[in-house]
Write a protein that binds this DNA or RNA. Structure first.
Lengths: 333, 333
DNA sequence: CTGCCTTATTGAAACGTTTCGAATTAATTT
DNA sequence: AAATTAATTCGAAACGTTTCAATAAGGCAG
């Protein structure tokens, strides 16, 4: 692979002039500029970006860390982030935090391989984030609050969203409302649980622990929780699932037992993933403004890179999307 | 940020010894090793990965270039690739080819920012791929054939898959079978179209150009094509859509006109995206072994990095997944 | 013709690592 | 005690850029 040195040699100039010429600096004459460009072309010269990054201590790249690159849930988020990074002339790369201690994500954080980082991955440690964030590598955290220097916070109003969902179920006349829970170490899950409890409380419904089922945010988890309800022969009047994937699992489990969701039991999810609209019955759910979140996250990164660190956490509103699984439409008829 | 030089100073040793110590080389005594490690800890030293990459001319990273990071279609592929890269101790980063000439993907290719590249993105130019591929950066191409040095080919048997799908429709008694087409510059689409035509031919059905509708591989495209059929008042007996997203668009269009898919008209898609199973009626489709493709692609990269360049293109088999939209299940009853 | 400003070019240092070969010291063998 | 070998440590070069400060060459006014 030809280096700038080869180009300089072929063009008969110093490497510094070659560099200036290639970067179109006004310091160099038109004549030599052409000479250098010709040489570069002849040698099929491609600058070594890594050397450049090292010299400039800048990568021109924003890293987006996700807990699992393959989740369908992130599409819109990525789109939002991408729009802004492209508009700012930066590169975006997506990184998985899969693999724990020596995941690519951890390496990226430690070794400052990007100029800014956006994280939506519960399995990245707070301490790592704190020690990795620097003035020239601000970090935007999307799934939990963390007050630290060079760390920015954006959250969805999980508690409010859950409140809306459960309030809706209560308005439909349900009292025995089960909570299908995500992992307990998930901040999102905790907040949604809080919203659920608050809604019950505000309506004077006593909360009971036996209404809580663990589903781990996965479809399988939801399926098993549904099966468990059936086995225990305890079917609640309504179920609030802390995310859509689990809700879809429940639908499958109940379908196998010929229990009609939206009639025999009401169901509401959270997230509004693409599937939710297509599943039968269509899932009533709480929509998160994922694209907006991506846009704002990226904007925050660039603002921070320009020295404006907004200190206060941003809270994004959710929206209840009423479809068929909660039975509301039938009630109205 | 502390550098290795600072560490060496604090530990009172030369930079080279510090380096050896940090890399746990046997050349350095236990005693100094501890001294250096202590100094590193005290300074919160983090090695600069970019400098390391430059020195070693190696990034320990595999790049996966996708035309659109946010497509739901890639989940399984990514999973497969990820499994193998992690197993080999490499990092994986996903890159979008969005943005044309100065997309991140192009930069990655030109500047050799990864040790190997996997591409599933029709908007990356053949010439770019040819000039970017090198012994120390092999490229695996997933969506089209390209014979070039250091370029490896893996394809899905698009033609065979399409053939199976159309053959199935013919076996169900249909003769007037429409083709819902993807973009004409897509190799995948061309192959699927070829399979469609061959199946017709082999059954002695004359092909007609008016059976071809353009849907551009998008749901909207499929929707409009469906609407167009309705407007023209020409409903075929069966439709073979060159991908699932278009098929789902058709379902929506026909649903609005109260035409029953699976009864009034048979429909088969291609890809078996996650949605296909959940849509109503569930979509009969041709499944691509996406995860397997990812696994094999990654394996090929590592083999190439070890000097074994398999020259022959790999062709992966597809599988017809029969669900409700083709009406086959009803026929059997 | 000297001195001074422009303009164009250059050499060298720097970014933060790794690693070769040499140098120093300690240990072992003869 | 001298010579060889082994164990440590070190200095310097290298990876491929960018950019500062210095130099060289013209051009022009005095």
């Amino acid at each position: 692979m030809a280096t700038i040195k080869d180009v300089a040699n072929l063009a008969g100039v110093a490497v510094s002039t070659a560099s200036y010429a290639l970067n179109n600096s006004p310091r160099v004459s038109q004549e030599t500029k052409e000479k250098v460009l010709a040489a570069a072309k002849q040698l099929n010269y491609q600058p070594n970006g890594i050397a450049r990054d090292l010299k400039l201590s800048k990568t021109n790249t924003i890293g987006l860390i996700l807990s699992d690159l393959s989740g369908p849930f992130y599409s819109e988020l990525i789109k939002g982030v991408q729009d802004i990074t492209i508009a700012n002339g930066y590169d975006l790369i997506a990184i998985s935090s899969l693999g724990g201690k020596n995941s690519t994500a951890v390496k990226f954080l430690k070794e400052k391989r990007a100029d800014g980082i956006i994280i939506l991955a519960h399995n990245i440690d707070n301490n790592l984030i704190i020690s990795a964030a620097r003035e020239d590598m601000p970090i935007v955290l999307l799934d939990r609050p963390l007050k630290a220097k060079y760390v920015l916070n954006i959250q969805v109003d999980n508690e409010g969203g859950a409140y809306k969902a459960v309030e809706h179920l209560i308005a439909l006349g349900h009292r025995k409302i089960a909570y299908l829970s995500g992992p307990n170490n998930s901040y999102d899950n905790l907040k949604r649980f809080a919203g659920y409890k608050k809604a019950l409380e505000d309506s004077g419904i006593a909360f009971s622990n036996q209404w809580v089922y663990q589903g781990n945010f996965t479809k399988e988890g939801g399926y098993h929780a549904g099966k468990l309800m059936l086995l225990q022969n305890y079917i609640p009047e309504a179920i609030f699932a802390a995310n859509d994937e689990m809700a879809i699992g429940v639908i499958e489990a109940f379908k196998e037992a010929d229990i009609l969701i939206g009639e025999d039991v009401a169901l509401v999810g959270f997230d509004d993933i693409q599937l939710s609209e297509y599943v039968t019955p269509a899932l009533t759910t709480v929509r998160q403004p994922m694209k907006e979140m991506g846009v704002i996250a990226a904007q925050q990164v660039f603002q921070a890179l320009n020295g404006n660190f907004s200190t206060e956490a941003i809270l994004l509103e959710t929206k209840l999307i009423i479809r068929d699984s909660c039975g509301a439409k039938k009630v109205k008829l």
